[in-house]
Design a protein around this nucleic acid. Structure first.
Length: 781
DNA sequence: TCGCCCTATATAAGG
DNA sequence: TATAGGGCGA
């Protein structure tokens, strides 16, 4: 990395380097940092905001700063609170700090995610909020099941008011730091006629009874404790001498409140809090993140030092220019200008217009093979998509080509059905009062215990106010259960007793294996003939294997609910396919960015829901995408795309019009029938006096507008085909067309209708083959 | 209670 | 198009 230790004796740096003494050597860990990075590392005391643009060495600054604090003995490892959002980031930091300070300093017990640290604090003080320190952490699945029970008890039609929706609302409230008492019926008016708030309260009560907390509670209950028990808060004030926060732009209100409370040990102007982030990379607004947190840091902590890292060590100047020009269309930025330190203009950013998403996948595949032939590794290339449904076409193409790829993201290891089932067994063994887990597996594998039996267990559990397992024991003593169910349950209960007793004598991973065998769970998948069952069995083995790394069953269960994420084996050379969101923080030589079409990117749904703010977040996402590239960014637009099986025509994304023409190379694969291809709209904006105004007059934008107004009139559609399809269906099933009729389609040309479902027509086109399209795209031939 | 068939639905995703 | 979940019949 450039930026050698050239400035150590310069007067400007003298003040901060003075602490090492005139003749002392600069510590190793400071070598190779540029001036701003070094200042960020050395400004240990007082509030500090580090605005770190993409590729400017953010993680390096954070880890070096910690190393510096440790080496200069300003604090012990246990006195530094350092929070990240993801386990991956936390792991990476631990590793890098280890490298910097050597193995001498063990631990950093308070380096972790918001949630793992929150859980740690909550376990210590659980009794203050009516929990026991061994409370279980509910995952999304448990949460939904619990809500369904509540809805059932309240006689709310789950069809009309889906449990997911309420879960989403409660998540939003918790992200904003609102407990049930802070939510008014008016806030929840959109759910079950304003009963949302009451359900929220009922949900929280159930959690207490179950001795459980969900992810939101981990922070919310911390805040509650800090507010109500000043002595507890004071303890942490004394404990944490330094606080560091990574990706601050992603923090939500609850996290913000949590941090503020912890920072209150000193006057705001002297708090040793350092936050690092990039407002231009805030892409999680839909998850509750408040960009505002970072924008207002200087107000929260008066006198805060602000350091901008603007030297980019990643991308060529063409790539940076494209990204910077694009992001400049956003308002309300703190404003940074990235300067390349790579020193190369590099290839222009390419924009390719293709006929449809199939051609897009073909083109990308070809290009990848070309680069591969030139000696580049597949590991150095990635495809970043806006929505996961875009991935499939690439996967299919790559399978045909025999091109190695890996999908990053997707369902995570512990979210798999088989893993959750196995964990449910283990949870009941570790904690027999865990009713949700017990319910999950009473009839898995199938034991002939259906809804009515489970219902009976629930009733007894509720009326006797005991756990589900205890209720089961009670029922076994009565005549209420049918003989068959009774003997099955008796068998199951005695199995659990048996397993629990073995917990003392056996290593927990051996016990786990026995549980899976004896319960018949393994056998269930062995008997299963579906193609993914071998994989599931493999996952179960992996689970047992991973248990060996833990001392106790309890330790393992804590880990699995908070930490376990999917292993991304990087041994093999493979192209990465992932969403733009999961690409944040990564970099590749070559980045393919397909699907730059209005409605898909920027996403229509985001714009509908969040308007201008939504559009700006989409633009930041585009910025994140482009800045992942070191050498090449290759964007593409498809003129036609299949969404949920229906072909729809699309217009180029307005973001393409916002790229600087001098850094962009526009290509057309020539397979368009003219008219709609992306024809270098990037030039038009530069004829206008004010680029910020005129962006909405670019061809892409105008086409989008035209499309939108047409929609109401029943004209051509962009993405809402399904909606319209339904309303037309209501008018009867008759179509203006008949089977066998010759028709014309603006894109696909002439063809004959082979099937009609409502207003969806299947047509065999003479040139384009068989497609399913909406009737409104078709004219009589 | 099980299992099949039909239909409703479809971003992004961290802990 | 693909899948998941609910309803209903055996």
């Amino acid at each position: 990395m450039p930026g050698n230790a050239h400035n150590i004796d310069r007067p400007s740096a003298g003040a901060i380097t003075g602490q090492f003494g005139r003749n002392q050597q600069t510590p190793d860990y400071l070598r190779g940092l540029n001036e701003e990075q070094r200042e960020a590392v050395l400004s240990t005391d007082g509030p500090l905001l580090v605005l770190a643009g993409a590729g400017t060495g953010k993680t390096r600054v954070l880890t070096t700063r910690i190393a510096h604090i440790l080496t200069t003995k300003r604090a012990w490892p246990s006195e530094i609170l350092s929070v990240t959002f993801t386990n991956k980031a936390a792991r990476e930091m631990k590793e890098r700090i280890g490298h910097l300070v050597g193995a001498g300093v063990e631990g950093m017990p308070w380096l972790g995610t918001f949630h793992s640290i929150g859980a740690r604090i909550l376990r210590r003080h659980a009794e203050l909020v009516d929990l026991k320190s061994d409370f279980t952490i509910l995952d999304t699945d448990d949460q939904i099941r619990l809500i369904k029970q509540l809805l059932d008890a309240e006689n709310i039609d789950e069809k009309r008011w889906p449990a997911r929706q309420l879960a989403g609302m409660m998540d939003t409230w918790k992200n904003r730091g609102l407990g049930p008492e802070d939510v008014s019926p008016a806030d929840s008016g959109s759910y079950a006629n304003g009963r949302g708030a009451r359900l929220y309260a009922a949900y929280q009560n159930r959690l207490k009874v179950l001795n459980a907390a969900d992810f939101g509670d981990l922070l919310l209950l911390n805040i509650k404790i800090f507010k109500e028990y000043p002595d507890v808060l004071a303890y942490y004030h004394g404990k944490f001498k330094y606080m560091l926060v990574d990706e601050y732009q992603d923090s939500n209100v609850a996290q913000y409140l949590w941090l503020r409370l912890l920072a209150q040990g000193k006057p705001a102007s002297q708090a040793n809090i350092c936050v690092v982030g990039d407002d231009d990379q805030s892409i999680y607004g839909w998850r509750g993140a408040e960009v505002d947190n970072i924008l207002r840091f200087e107000k929260d902590f008066p006198g805060a030092k602000v350091i901008k890292l603007e030297r980019n060590y990643r991308s060529t100047s063409n790539i940076l220019k494209a990204a910077s020009t694009l992001i400049a269309f956003n308002e309300g930025r703190l404003g940074k200008t990235l300067q390349t330190d790579v020193g190369e203009t590099g290839e222009p950013v390419s924009v390719t217009s293709v006929w449809d998403s199939e051609e897009e996948a073909r083109t990308v595949g070809d290009e990848i093979e070309n680069y591969q032939r030139q000696g580049e590794t597949l590991n150095s290339m990635a495809i970043l998509v806006r929505a996961s449904f875009q991935m499939r076409e690439f996967e299919e193409r790559f399978i045909t080509l025999g091109l190695n790829y890996r999908v990053i993201g997707g369902p995570r290891f512990y979210e798999r059905k088989e893993i959750r089932d196995a964990i449910a067994y283990l949870r009941v063994v570790a904690n027999p009062s865990d009713g949700l887990s017990f319910e999950r597996i009473v009839n898995t594998p199938k034991r002939g215990l259906g809804d009515s039996t489970v219902q009976m267990l629930h009733n007894t559990s509720r009326s006797a106010n005991v756990s589900l397992l205890a209720a089961t024991r009670m029922l076994l003593e009565t005549e209420e259960l049918k003989p068959k169910q009774r003997s099955t349950l008796r068998e199951l209960v005695s199995q659990f007793d048996n397993w629990s007793s073995r917990l003392q004598s056996l290593p927990h991973y051996e016990l786990a294996e026995q549980i899976l065998d004896e319960s018949g769970y393994t056998a269930m998948w062995q008997a299963d003939k579906s193609p993914d069952s071998p994989g599931r069995l493999e996952n179960l083995k992996e689970l047992v294997r991973s248990m060996e790394e833990f001392e106790t069953l309890g330790g393992f269960l804590e880990h699995i609910s908070l930490v376990m994420d999917r292993d991304t084996a990087e041994a093999e050379d493979a192209v990465s396919i992932m969403t733009l969101h999961s690409a944040k923080g990564l970099e590749f030589d070559t980045v393919f960015l397909p699907g730059w079409e209005e409605g898909l990117f920027p996403s229509q749904r985001t714009m509908d829901e969040s308007g201008r703010a939504g559009l700006e977040e989409e633009r930041r996402l585009a910025y994140v995408g482009i800045t992942r590239a070191r050498k090449r960014a290759r964007l593409s637009v498809a003129q036609n795309r299949r969404i949920h099986g229906l072909w729809q025509s699309a217009i180029p994304s307005r973001f393409l019009d916002e790229l600087p023409p001098e850094a962009v190379d526009v290509k057309d694969t020539g397979s368009s029938y003219g008219g709609y291809g992306y024809g270098g709209g990037a030039t038009s904006r530069f004829n206008k006096a004010d680029p910020f105004e005129s962006v909405y007059e670019t061809p892409g934008w105008q086409r989008a507008r035209a499309q939108q107004s047409n929609r109401k009139g029943g004209g051509p559609l962009t993405i809402e085909g399904d909606l319209v399809a339904r309303s037309v269906d209501l008018g009867g099933d008759r179509s203006a067309f008949g089977i066998g009729e010759r028709v014309f389609h603006l894109k696909f040309g002439y063809g004959a209708i082979s099937d009609i479902e409502g207003n969806k027509l299947t047509i065999d086109f003479e040139k384009a083959g068989r497609k399913k399209v909406l009737e409104s795209f078709i004219k009589k031939g």
